[in-house]
């Protein structure tokens, strides 16, 4: 008797991810929704680890799970009051979301089943972490423009042949752009204080207005 642990854990994590994703949709309480979202994204990180992509899995944990956390705190907890904590969904919204979701699902299913290599029964994924190649070095070098997997093939070719160009410049442009957006958002959202030098109570009033949890 043998158990294919790779398949077993794939189904387990996939069920967890889809189950919590469903719970996000079906729940009405916004904080619980965020918690389910974190759980679902965590299960997806587990799927990445299972596939041997430990770097992407750790990134998923750091960016999506951690990022959702920040969203939960600053976006949800500070703004959710009264009607926003429990959100009902109207039938029209259900219909629209159902239509969009169903069409996306159809496209994804078609794409998944149209790749012949994936449905090949003879193809078995490596499921032992000690047999897997390290992932962080190829990704880091790829960012700088050195594709480790094509290094041997391109030994004769010039250094920056096709497919060997780095992602560093686009990456930097995107990150600088994001920083600009962040600073802009912080500027727009900051509490506007009066420039007049007045008595302290005016300042204190603005301070209590923006304090959390009252």
């Amino acid at each position: 008797m043998g158990i294919d642990f790779h398949t077993l854990f794939f189904y387990l994590l996939a069920i967890l991810a889809s189950g919590f994703a469903l719970a996000v949709v079906l729940s009405n309480n916004i904080v619980r929704m965020a918690f389910y979202l974190v759980a679902s994204l965590g299960a997806v990180a587990g799927l990445f680890f299972l596939a041997g992509a430990d770097f992407v899995g750790a990134l998923q944990l750091m960016i999506y799970v951690g990022g959702t956390l920040v969203l939960l705190i600053f976006g949800v907890m500070l703004t959710a009051r009264g009607p926003l904590v429990n959100m009902g969904t109207s039938p029209a919204q259900w219909a629209m979301v159902g239509l969009i979701g169903a069409s996306l699902l159809a496209v994804l299913l078609y794409a998944a089943f149209s790749v012949g290599r994936w449905t090949d029964p003879g193809r078995i994924a490596p499921c032992r972490p000690d047999l897997m190649a390290p992932t962080s070095t190829p990704i880091g070098l790829g960012l700088l423009g050195v594709r480790v997997d094509r290094l041997d093939a391109d030994r004769a070719a010039p250094a920056l042949s096709e497919g060997m160009s780095g992602y560093l410049l686009p990456f930097e442009i995107v990150s600088v752009h994001l920083v600009v957006v962040l600073i802009g958002a912080a500027y727009l959202a900051r509490a506007r204080r009066r420039a007049t030098i007045g008595p302290a109570p005016a300042n204190r009033a603005t301070a209590t207005d923006s304090s959390p949890g009252d």
Binding site: D54, F55, V65
Partner: peptide, 28 residues
């Protein structure tokens, strides 16, 4: 237990999740 190529990154990512329980507990 699990010899990861990206152990430092993994540990920092997972250790940062502890705060989630604290925040949930505080809010709930």
């Amino acid at each position: 237990a699990l010899h990861l190529d990206t152990a430092v990154f993994f540990i920092l990512a997972v250790a940062g999740l502890e705060v989630l329980g604290v925040i949930l507990g505080g809010y709930a």
